[in-house]
């Protein structure tokens, strides 16, 4: 009897633990997983240290999706505090800085642009190699 109880208790704890892990993962999912709508533009991150295409145009309220299609770790960063040169980042007035964090190969990141204007972003480890990209956001029609 005590053996059964112990087993049941252990199983319950295991299931609760699994549920907690799943909840944690959902709660900490990258912005990419949090977005459900299809992106208005997609950008690939390459082995040759470029964002392809290097410039995309979307309307305010639309989303851009970046995919790391390379074997190299990249970031999508439009945060002046992460940049070491002024030319790496440009944000329209009122826009909020964003940063994907480290993106391993095959990982994705999405960002929805609310403020119209021109955004210049970069990859942190390849800032020196001038891995820059641009998003031009026009007012919603």
């Amino acid at each position: 009897m005590s053996l059964v109880s112990t087993h049941t208790l252990a199983r319950t704890r295991w299931l609760l633990g699994l549920a907690a892990v799943l909840l944690f993962l959902v709660g900490h999912a990258p912005e990419a997983q949090a977005q459900s709508s299809s992106p208005a533009a997609t950008v690939d991150m390459t082995n040759t240290l470029s964002f392809a295409p290097d410039t995309v145009r979307v309307q305010a309220g639309e989303t851009v999706r970046w995919t790391n299609g390379s074997v190299i770790v990249h970031t999508v960063t439009a945060d002046p505090e992460e940049a070491t040169t002024d030319e790496s980042v440009r944000l329209p007035e009122g826009a909020t800085p964003f940063d994907s964090g480290t993106l391993d190969p095959e990982e994705r990141f999405e960002h929805t642009f609310e403020v119209p204007g021109t955004y210049r972003y970069f990859c942190i480890p390849h800032e020196g190699a001038k891995m820059y990209g641009t998003v031009i956001v026009t007012p919603a029609e």
């Binding site: 040759t48 800032e127 020196g128 190699a129």
Partner: peptide, 8 residues
Amino acid sequence: EYVRGENY
């Protein structure tokens, strides 16, 4: 320090 440029 970083000694690569554009296109590596």
